[in-house]
Amino acid sequence: MSGDGQPDGATAAQDRPPALELRRLTVSYGARPVLWDVDAAFPAGTLAAIVGPNGAGKSTLLRAALGLVPPDAGQSLVEGRPARAALDRVAYVPQRDAVDWDFPITVREVVEMGRYRAAGWLRRVPRADRELVAEALERVGMTPFADRQIGALSGGQRQRVFIARALAQRSPVMLLDEPFAGVDARTEASLLDLLAQLRSEGRSIVVVHHDIATVRARFDWALLLNVRTIACGPVAETLTAETLRRAYGAAVGDDPEALEEQLWAG
């Protein structure tokens, strides 16, 4: 691993296989499919968003891509390899509701979890990795809070910690599930800056996000999803009035102003 903040294999983006590729992915909860025959590819070295209305299957897509949900059919490839075999190349920032906030764990210890895989079973996190942890904390501005208990933080601070944990993994691909939900505007802006910076360092980042305006302004690539793939490609081509109408249908309808609102305000 290089020591200059670059993730492994961060070379020219064009030569690399897609950071994440989904082929014919179908996932159902019960009888009804949440994702139906979804094809999508996220090129390496881009800041990509997964956009779609509520219930479109955005979070499920990430979870299925990581193998946390068993798919009915289809494949998920990370950097060209089956995701299950390539999980060491992925850092995941889950939605935060599954966690026990009262757990006796400090901010630093949470971020250290990002180094667990590198340490392996039964071994301690090596001393040298503490610097990586400190660096990750510094990048999200959480250094002064490193010894706080995780539950003593605000929503935005908790999200910063989880992103720091993903940073500490130093994986070339980062998947973030609704990282800005319940986060104040200032934190969102600074986290977006951070993501952009990571992208320019060569990492590939996929974010589930609901705010189309932000996606248009700050992201390179988008998957517009509503159970099936509506569009997938560079943001400007993907998020057009036509595709948005197809994805959000009822929400924007024929009203050009509502559509505009959906486009710019989110």
Partner: peptide, 22 residues
């Protein structure tokens, strides 16, 4: 002692632990 980080990690955030191979 041997399983300290595994016990801590999986108790606090089982889903994330799964993605990191524990």
């Amino acid at each position: 002692v041997a399983l300290w980080k595994e016990l801590k990690g999986t108790s606090f955030d089982p889903e994330f632990s799964r993605t990191t191979g524990f």
